[in-house]
């Protein structure tokens, strides 16, 4: 009995000191001078552009990761091929590798001046690094496994019986996927999408390397927070940080609301 209370206190204290308190300070600091900081920051054209860019980049990255993630999950679960375990392990790499490394790797490949592939694309007029495509790639890379890791266990669990039944009833592969497989994995996909969205909106390291941080062009919301903070605009930094934190909290609430249904 005593040990149980002790454990609870330990966990609560740990979470309080590490998560709840610091995050709540961001919130209180954002409103120290009432709504002034908020209004000022969110009417600044540079910040507004940064937020729009973040939403655009995260949106594209999430769409790419969802389509790719579901396709990859089907491939991993429904087909046998040599190197399957290796591929599965490789898909977890983005979780293990530091985002800064991801950014640098992308620069090495797609860098406009001395990248491996970049100069060729540049000659076609496509700029990747220091531009929106680079931001999308970096963001998609770091959030890559989130949909897959949600969908794979559910696909494995439902098995192939329902799909085979649909086929025997005359459904084509596409009809089987849209009418049977997708509804069966729907909650896992939504869950993965929410997690990917949260991760994509908050990405900093990889984006910082590939963005070049040009105000009004390639500066995203997280980069804007850093910029304001380094320029001693603590209030402004807190205001944007509060906005980002709110979106994450919203994501967690959505996930929490979905989870019980997803389990059934």
């Amino acid at each position: 009995m005593v040990s149980r209370w002790f454990l609870r206190a330990l966990v609560a204290g740990y979470l309080l000191m590490l998560v709840a308190w610091p995050v709540s300070l961001v919130a209180t600091n954002a409103f120290t001078n009432g709504l002034d900081a908020m209004v000022m920051v969110f009417t600044d054209p540079g910040v507004v552009h940064a937020l729009q860019l973040t939403v655009l980049v995260a949106g594209i990255a999430v769409v790419i990761n969802t389509v790719f993630g579901v396709a990859m999950s089907m491939f991993l679960v429904r087909y046998e091929f040599p190197g399957k375990r290796l591929l599965s392990a490789l898909l977890d790499l983005p979780l293990a590798v530091s985002p800064v490394v991801v950014g640098l790797a992308l620069v090495l490949v797609y860098g406009g001046r001395d990248g491996w592939f970049g100069p060729f694309l540049e000659s076609l007029g496509i700029r990747v690094i220091f531009s929106t495509p680079g931001l999308v790639m970096a963001t998609a890379f770091v959030a890559l496994p989130l949909v897959i890791r949600e969908v794979v266990p559910v696909l494995t669990e439902i098995g192939t019986d329902q799909e085979q039944a649909a086929k025997s009833l005359g459904a084509s592969s596409a009809q089987t996927f849209w009418r049977i497989t997708l509804p069966a994995i729907k909650w896992a996909v939504i869950y993965g999408v929410v997690l990917s969205t949260a991760r994509s909106l908050g990405e900093f390291g990889a984006v910082k390397v590939v963005s070049g941080n040009v105000l009004g062009e390639t500066r995203t919301a997280t980069l804007a927070v850093e910029e304001l903070y380094l320029n001693f605009d603590q209030a402004g930094a807190n205001a944007i940080a509060f906005g980002l934190a709110m979106v994450s909290v919203l994501c967690i609430v959505v996930v929490g609301a979905l989870r019980p249904r997803h389990r059934i």
């Binding site: 085979q164 039944a165 086929k167 025997s168 005359g170 459904a171 084509s172």
Partner: peptide, 9 residues
Amino acid sequence: PPQRRNVGF
């Protein structure tokens, strides 16, 4: 393919 055999399974 199974969907064109008109069998019930």
